[in-house]
């Protein structure tokens, strides 16, 4: 800040403001050194991410209601359509989620190296070593040893791949139950083969119910770790799922560059 008036300069603001102190004490660092912008997530993937986020939010809220209806309709049955609307929202959101799944499946083939099918399964020995360092990073044991990744680190990737698998199971169990109202219909024929494999219709219902909690647990952890990476590590990861890319220092080596 340069003083242009002859008046006495106001006292220098503390470089570490209270709010910043709360977030780790560092003033938001000005970029130092050379930075470059890397493009990671294609438009379909980002659209898919936010559509899925919204639909999962709706699905979890409506799903918990369907599983255990905590509000009751009042008056005559003809005057209320509470469960009807909740189910409508649930099925609509499920449709959106399936659409995002189709986009994601296509993008597993058409995406860049961070988005392709092979990126889902970091199974090389180096990946496991890096996963170990990443766990230590989160435990704050020698965090400086943590590997740098442009895309997802192996720990992160396994959790996302796991969420994909849970979502697939949710979609299958959901469509099984959806198909019951029309035996011989499309959804019944397309999904009912899985009922004996899963151990009966009630087990399907149970799985669908229990797996809901995976999302309830995953979402806050996911948001926290993304925010943490942004706030403390200045990684620009939140930016990357909005704009598609992030700024990274030129002199840092990235495992997946």
């Amino acid at each position: 800040m340069t003083a242009t008036s002859p008046r006495p300069a106001p006292p220098e603001p503390s470089p570490v403001r209270p709010f910043r102190r709360l977030l780790g004490g560092k003033p938001m660092a000005q970029p130092e050194g050379e930075y470059r912008w890397v493009y990671l997530w294609g438009t379909p993937l980002r659209l898919m991410h936010w559509a899925a986020a919204l639909s999962i939010l709706v699905l979890v809220i409506t799903g918990l209601y369907i599983g255990r209806p905590y509000f009751l309709g009042r008056g005559e049955a003809s005057g209320s359509f509470l469960m009807g609307w909740v189910r409508f929202l649930h099925f609509t959101a499920a449709g959106v989620l399936v659409a995002t799944g189709i986009v994601r499946a296509y993008w597993l083939l058409a995406g860049n190296k961070f988005e392709r099918f092979t990126a889902l399964f970091p199974l090389r020995p180096r990946d496991f070593a890096n996963m170990f360092h990443q766990v230590r990073f989160y435990l704050m044991i020698r965090p400086e040893r943590a590997p740098h990744y442009l895309g997802h680190n192996p720990l992160q990737q396994f959790s996302y791949t796991g969420i994909y698998l849970v979502t697939v199971l949710m979609v299958i169990t959901g469509f099984i139950m959806y198909g019951q109202s029309e035996p011989g219909g499309f959804f019944y024929r397309a999904f009912n083969w899985a009922v004996p494999l899963l151990g009966g219709l009630q087990t399907v219902r149970f799985l669908h119910h229990v797996l809901t909690w995976v999302f309830v647990i995953f979402v806050p952890v996911h948001i926290y770790l993304a925010a943490r990476a942004d706030v403390w590590e200045h990684q620009g990861s939140i930016s990357s799922i909005i704009s598609g890319g992030r700024f990274v220092p030129k002199d840092v080596h990235f495992v997946d560059d």
């Binding site: 560092k26 130092e32 050194g33 400086e144 943590a146 990684q235």
Partner: peptide, 10 residues
Amino acid sequence: EPKGGDRGQN
């Protein structure tokens, strides 16, 4: 050394 920055910054 420049202040702060442990990872991804320098």
